[in-house]
């Protein structure tokens, strides 16, 4: 585990650094977007990690936890770690999207379907983390959180469709330029691909670290509990 963590850590830092260097200095500016196109090496990869990877992983681990055959506290911890890291990524997705939106659309925020459902998903994530903080027996908490994750996952398509219809019916023409990401070639495409790999690796590293912290904390509590029990028992024998 230690080895995997080190390898993942070194790899993710190196890949992200390479992505930044290529994205900021090596790739050429775009014909339409100019310098702004450099955000394409950051924002879509963050969104991919937050919306698909983190959320999918949390939901998958929740199902694996609830399934009696694969029930293990590990899945509960993995699910929680994915959500916690996912919240960081979803926040950055919204921030970078907003920074990109300001010069492109002229506003920091627009009630576009994708933006709105991303924000709602972020609030759902936060609700999950709030639920985790409710003091309860670990088993009870794990079951509650797994069920909450599944509820949220089921809610996502409903949210998506209602928001898409709400937006399109409300505004008529969308302010989002469908050609926002113009066709890209060569080095730009490779850098874009690299950004996805880099941030996926970074996500894996962070989730694994978070998971490991939780594992160590649980085992530490177990050790402390057995020690306290032994101490009490020794007192009983002595008296």
């Amino acid at each position: 585990m230690r080895r995997t963590l080190t390898i993942l850590g070194v790899a993710s830092v190196a890949l992200v650094a390479l992505d930044v260097i290529l994205g900021l200095w090596v790739t050429p500016p775009d014909a339409d977007q100019g310098e702004l196109v450099r955000l394409v090496y950051l924002h879509p990869a963050l969104a991919w990690v937050a919306l698909y990877l983190a959320f999918g992983m949390a939901a998958l681990c929740a199902v694996l936890y609830l399934w009696p055959r694969t029930r293990s506290m590990r899945f509960d911890r993995l699910s929680a770690s994915a959500v916690e890291v996912g919240v960081v990524f979803i926040g950055l997705t919204l921030i970078t999207g907003s920074i990109w939106g300001r010069p492109t659309w002229g506003v920091w925020w627009t009630w576009d379907a994708r933006l709105t459902s991303t924000a709602l998903l972020g609030v759902l994530f936060l609700g999950y983390l709030a639920l985790r903080r409710v003091p309860a027996d670990p088993e009870v908490r794990a079951r509650r959180c797994a069920i909450a994750a599944i509820f949220a996952a089921v809610d996502v398509p409903i949210v998506h469709f209602s928001v898409v219809w709400w937006q399109t019916l409300h505004q008529g023409a969308t302010v989002l330029n469908p050609n926002l990401t113009p066709t890209i070639h060569g080095l730009m495409a490779w850098t874009l691909l690299l950004s996805f790999i880099a941030f996926t690796t970074l996500f894996a590293w962070m989730v694994l670290m978070r998971f490991q912290i939780e594992e160590l904390r649980e085992s530490g509590e177990d050790v402390e509990l057995t020690r306290a029990l032994e101490a009490r028992r020794a007192e009983g024998v002595a008296s």
């Binding site: 992200v16 702004l36 450099r38 960081v88 970078t96 590293w205």
Partner: peptide
């Protein structure tokens, strides 16, 4: 460098760096 691009990268990398650290 474009100020928006710089802000996006600084905020993202700063947050991720701090969180990872």
């Amino acid at each position: 460098m474009n100020a928006y691009v710089a802000a996006g990268y600084v905020i993202s990398l700063g947050t991720l760096g701090a969180y990872g650290f």
